[in-house]
Design a protein around this nucleic acid. Structure first.
Lengths: 225, 225
DNA sequence: TAGATTGTTAATCGATTAACAATC
DNA sequence: TAGATTGTTAATCGATTAACAATC
C-alpha cells in the first residue's frame, strides 16, 4: 500500500519467517489463521503481525482472518520467490562446496550455475554436477549467462576483489560468507552470513546465561572444576 | 558498569564486528583509535560506539581515545573468547561436513570433538580427523566429555528432537543450522543460522533495488528480456 | 444482524544520536 | 595548561504495542 514510505529492514527480515510458518500450516492443511492464532505460533504479537503485513497490502479479511495459501503466495511474491535466480559460487573450498550441495537440495528457484576457483587443483572438478571453473573466466561467464547472484566463499583477503569483479560483471546481489564487510554500490544487494560473528554471539550468551537461569545451574555446573 | 540493566541484544550483536575491526587495526600496527576515527572505519556513529562500549566499562581515555590492543582484549573477554569451547556436530551431511572443516580452520578456541549421525553409511568415517559416531551415543558422549556447544546440521524435522537430547545432556548453547525455530529452556543459549531466510532476504533486496539505484539501471537491464 | 477480526491511528517503549561537562 | 576526546545525560527518532473504528 505505502509505495512511498520505505519498508523498514526489521519488517523485511521477518518475512522469510512468516513464510516458513505459513508453509508448515499449508502442509498441515490449515486454510485460515487469525493474527492472534498466528501470534501464538510464531511468537510475534498479533499487533505486529497485522502491522507488518499491512506494509504490503490488506491481505486479511475482517471477522475472518488470513487465508493461509493466499498469504503464503503474497509473501513469496513480495520476496521475489516466484522467479528463478542464477548463481555462481566463488571459492571451491569447504564452504563453497557445502553451499553448492546445500542450495542444490534446498532451494528450488536458486540455481548454482558454476563455481569459480583460483587453485588449479580444483579447476575441472565437478561438485554435485556443477563445474569448477578458472576464476579468470568469472567476468565473462557472469556477463554471458546473466548471473543474478554471486556467492562469495573465499578468504576475507580476496573477498572485496571478488565482489568488485562480480559487481562490474553485473550481478544484482551478493551472498557473502567471507568474514568482512564489503563495499558495494547501493545498486547491488548484499546479504552477509558472518559465521564467526554468529559463533561469537553464541559464546557471549553462553557466558551470560546465569542472568537468565537459576534452577538448572546446580545440576549442570556442580561437577565443573 | 551497569550490572543491573541488561545489555540490549542490538549491542551484543555489534560486539563481534567491533572485534573484527580491532583485530585488523592490530595487524596494521595501529595502537590507538578515537571513537570518530573508528566511526569512519566501521560505519557506526562515534556516539553509538562510545555508548556501546560504556555498557561494559570505561575502556577509553579522555583526550586520547581507545587503546586498540586493550579494547580488543576487553571485547574478546566480554564475548568469552578467552576460553575454549568443546563442540559436537549433529548431522554429517554436506552442511555438517562443511562446518567440521570450517571451524577447524577458522576457530581457535572452538573445537569440534565429534560428529553424530544416524545414517550407518557415514558412521565410522573421519572428516578432517573428527570421527563420525552413531547418534545413539550422543547423550553419553556429551555428558562424559562435558560438551559446551551442540551444532545442529540435521533436517528441520529432527532438529527439535536433537535439541532436546543435547539440552538434556547438558550443553550450554546450540548453534542451529536447521531451518526451524527451536524450543529451548531459557538456560540454553541459542544462535540460529537460517541460510534460507538469509537467501530470501537477498531475493527481496534484489527485487527492490530500483528504489535505491538509478544510473546503473540502464546498462545492466538494457538487454534483459 | 451480531460477532469476530482486520486495518490503522495513537501511545509507549527502546534504541540511536546529539550535546556537553568531566577529565586525561 | 590547553586541546582533545571520553563518559554520560538529554533529545530524537524509529519500531513495537495498544486501542478501536471499520467492515466482513
Amino acid at each position: 500500500m505505502n509505495k512511498n514510505t520505505k519498508t523498514s529492514s526489521a519488517v523485511i527480515k521477518r518475512l522469510p519467517r512468516y513464510r516458513r510458518y505459513l508453509r508448515d500450516l499449508q502442509r498441515k492443511g490449515v486454510d485460515k489463521i487469525s493474527s492472534s492464532e498466528f501470534s501464538a505460533l510464531i511468537g510475534y504479537t498479533a499487533s505486529q503481525i497485522r502491522q507488518d503485513l499491512n506494509n504490503f497490502g490488506g491481505f486479511g479479511q475482517q471477522g475472518y482472518g488470513y487465508n493461509v495459501n493466499g498469504l503464503f503466495n503474497e509473501i513469496s511474491s513480495i520476496l521475489g520467490l516466484d522467479r528463478d535466480y542464477k548463481m555462481v559460487i566463488v571459492g571451491a573450498g569447504n564452504l563453497g562446496q557445502a553451499i553448492a550441495n546445500y542450495t542444490y537440495y534446498y532451494k528450488a528457484g536458486f540455481v548454482v550455475r558454476g563455481i569459480f576457483e583460483v587453485n588449479p587443483r580444483l579447476i575441472g572438478l565437478k561438485i554435485n554436477d556443477i563445474e569448477v571453473m578458472d576464476y579468470e573466466g568469472l567476468d565473462a561467464y557472469v556477463k554471458e549467462n546473466k548471473i543474478d547472484i554471486g556467492i562469495i566463499c573465499t578468504t576475507k583477503d580476496s573477498a572485496q576483489d571478488v565482489a568488485d569483479t562480480l559487481t562490474a560483471a553485473g550481478v544484482k546481489g551478493i551472498w557473502n560468507f567471507a568474514p568482512v564487510d564489503l563495499n558495494l554500490p547501493p545498486c547491488v544487494a548484499i546479504e552477509n552470513v558472518h559465521l564467526s560473528d554468529s559463533l561469537h554471539s553464541l559464546a557471549y550468551h553462553i557466558n551470560h546465561r546465569d542472568e537468565v537461569c537459576e534452577e538448572f545451574e546446580d545440576e549442570g555446573e556442580a561437577k565443573q572444576e
